[in-house]
């Protein structure tokens, strides 16, 4: 809750007057570390600690967070600015996502009264939102890695959004849902495996391959084994079945992505 309040404050605190009257400015509230890592002692109560406490109290399998985020913050100015940029994007996405859920919950309630279908999985959506910024940022980074590929560009171009079928086409994992670290990493892995089906034809040359080799080295060394059978299939529908069986932890929510897509579209309409 405190986290939410803070991010609201950061976004809303836009007027000049307010900025001036408040001491250390809005920036310091969004930031966790000073430039040399040493300047923040005064405000360090602001972020890290109480987040961790809240989190441990509220749910059981927290993703380990400290090392990843710390290293990222200590990095050079270039990375700091990129992190800030991503953080602001994630915050904006988060507001948008929560608005969508609210809208979806309203329509859900209306539907329930008319058709009597139970929405047990969706009704929990509100509690099911991952709010930890460090986790969201790390997930966003993983997603960006996947999207920053030729395969993804080709996929987006070749399969327009309304043609995509759940289970058949790769669907970007939903970074705002609460998953265990293992489940999330697995989803990312499977998503990337599916995306590989849109890799450019190999005749195009070494340049293309090089970029993928590099990515494999960084992110998914483990993927290599899974990669080959799927790539040899190259089919659209076939690979989806094999991959779905692999995702053990994904099963409990296997139905929801479909539902989510529906609620998302209704929510979008509502927002118009």
């Amino acid at each position: 809750m405190s986290h939410l309040a803070r991010s609201r404050r950061c976004d809303g605190n836009n007027t000049e007057l307010e900025d001036r009257s408040h001491g250390p400015s809005r920036w310091s509230q969004c930031r966790k570390r000073g430039i040399d890592g040493s300047l923040r002692s005064k405000r360090s109560d602001d972020d890290g600690e109480d987040d961790t406490n809240n989190r441990n109290a509220s749910f059981t399998t927290p993703e380990s967070r400290a090392p990843v985020s710390r290293i990222a913050r200590q990095a050079d100015w270039g990375s700091q600015v990129e992190d800030d940029e991503m953080r602001r994007d994630v915050q904006r996405d988060m507001q948008r996502y929560r608005r969508r859920i609210l809208a979806a919950e309203v329509t859900q309630r209306e539907r329930k009264t008319s058709s009597g279908s139970s929405g047990s999985c969706d009704s929990k959506e509100g509690d099911n939102v991952e709010m930890d910024e460090a986790v969201l940022l790390r997930r966003q980074k993983q997603i960006n890695y996947g999207k920053n590929t030729l395969a993804y560009d080709r996929y987006v171009k070749e399969v327009p959004k309304h043609m995509r079928q759940p289970g058949v086409h790769p669907k970007t994992p939903n970074k705002f849902r609460k998953y265990s670290r293992r489940s999330w990493d697995q989803q990312i892995k499977l998503w990337k495996v599916k995306l590989h089906a849109w890799d450019p034809p190999t005749e195009e040359g070494g340049e293309v391959n090089a970029s993928h080799v590099e990515e494999l080295r960084f992110e998914d060394v483990m993927d290599i084994e899974i990669d080959f059978p799927v790539l040899s299939d190259t089919g659209n529908g076939t690979c989806s079945f094999s991959t779905h069986n692999l995702s053990v932890e994904d099963d409990d929510c296997a139905g929801t992505p479909v539902k989510m897509q529906k609620t998302e579209t209704t929510a979008e309409l509502d927002m118009l």
Partner: peptide
Amino acid sequence: KVNNMPMVALVHPVYD
């Protein structure tokens, strides 16, 4: 600017 905001990373160095 980043998203139309000054870069936070530069604020303290500039002040320094």
